[in-house]
Design a protein around this nucleic acid. Structure first.
Lengths: 266, 266
DNA sequence: CAGTGGTCTAGACCACTGG
DNA sequence: CAGTGGTCTAGACCACTGC
């Protein structure tokens, strides 16, 4: 393949988020690097390249896909921007993983008011519940399940320096997480998404959160050690895996007396 | 200048956010496209290229900086990723502006629960107060003012379909916003940051928000039409202009009865 | 149609990592 | 030292916009 135009192709099987507009438009031109990004995404999704593993070098990939190194480079750049790959100069390109996050929780945006009280090791998890049940209609809709499909509900409490701060209710499609128990959750060292990745082959790529202020109900108040009616941050998260398929619904109640939810705008 | 290495240079005068680590490291190698990004940032900051205006073509810029078009391209890519420039195929590259945002408020992440009730035109602003005062110590610290420098405080209420939803308290350094009055705020059509940009030459580039849940105090409750003690989202925003210089501190109280704060994680 | 940004290539050299 | 990603160039051609 030389410098002439790439073939006009059908839209990629896993369309890029930005390509959504093309659905309404015409012939759906897709540049070469996009098509290759799609092929590489497939290698990730199908497990050819495992989380944390080193993928082939740019030169090898260029040979494999019969394109120039520069084009492969653009594909990798795009995947790195999506946090699916991680580049490390001199070493190679690696598959991103939740298992070895420096900041232990990539998706937890809660920070202590007092920056001196940084988190290292100061966080304890306690799993209160883990049960299997039929998915109520609203949940089934959010997770794109058939009505009454089985779901797993997990309830857990996070504490910092002994003070309870986060109460999470987590719902998962039972079909994807067979054999998940409170014990396995407790035994695992590291972030929960690391366990999902290594034990169930489910990788969280992206999530959307809806944040509200609510009053603590009696149950939450008791667990968080706060008076009933105390204001809490309600963080409702829908987490997606490849192809934007939703695989987790989570509702966290955050006590923001000594912590805040951090966000960056640009 | 040909393909040989770019000269090792001092760190750029306006260092990129990602270059912060280099301060501790050694010789601070800066690739050519970074240096050019710095030069272009200066052209933006100094007003050579005005908000909304068309900047020179890639070919012209390549000639001006005596580098290849590909290198200028990388610089522009970086500035576009920072939301300082906007590329439009076939037309050219433009300076980003708050004045003509499609979504009227780039920095307001509040969404209605009911997606049918989209915002177009359904938002009313009411400016309650606009006064000049001495900056209290905490504010002076956040805005990097000298103790007792003058500050402007603005209080405003946002309503959707007649229902008050957001109460904002906004603090600005008086030195940068001379002559700002409630009347000028009311008269201006479009987002507040558009007015700051066109009337005061202050461009908001980036912001950090700290989000908490709080109970409505009597004053806020009255303005938002809620009972005292009702849970509210407290959104504390520090907004920065070029060089990460803080130029606005804002504290919003959001009623999340029919709206939520939207966030994306990846 | 000319001008813009967007894609693709081929090749050279550099910075960084680890054995 | 070999191998990786990172930078830079020069040039060709394509897609898109507006006159």
């Amino acid at each position: 393949m030389h410098a002439s135009s790439p073939a006009r192709t059908m839209p990629p099987a896993v369309p890029a988020p930005t390509a959504a507009a093309a659905l309404a438009a015409g012939p759906a031109f897709s540049p070469l690097y996009q098509q290759i990004k799609t092929l590489m995404t497939r290698s990730l999704q199908q497990g050819e390249w495992q989380p944390g593993a080193l993928i082939p070098s740019e030169k090898d990939l260029a040979a494999r896909f019969k394109v120039s190194q520069g084009t492969v480079r653009k594909s990798i750049d795009a995947l790195a921007a999506d946090n699916l790959l991680v580049r490390r100069q001199g070493k190679g390109t690696f598959v991103a993983t939740h298992a070895e996050e420096k900041v232990q929780f990539r998706f937890l945006r809660l920070m202590p008011d007092d920056p001196d009280r940084a988190e290292p090791g100061a966080m304890e998890r306690r799993f209160i519940d883990c049960r299997r049940q039929r998915a109520p209609a609203e949940l089934a809709h959010a997770l794109q399940l058939r009505a009454n499909d089985a779901a797993i509900q997990v309830r857990r409490l996070l504490s910092f320096r002994g003070v309870p701060v986060v109460l999470d209710d987590i719902w998962l499609p039972a079909a994807l997480f067979k054999g998940l128990t409170a014990e396995r959750l407790s035994d695992y060292r590291g972030p929960m998404y690391g366990l999902f990745e290594s034990e169930f082959g489910v990788r969280m790529i992206r999530a959307e959160e809806k944040i509200r202020a609510v009053a603590a109900d009696p149950a939450a108040a008791a667990l968080l050690g706060l008076p009933v009616g105390a204001p809490l941050l309600s963080v409702e998260r829908l987490a997606m895996t490849y192809g934007d398929k939703p695989v987790e619904l989570r509702r966290g109640l955050y006590s923001t007396a000594a912590h805040y939810y951090r966000n960056e705008l640009s």
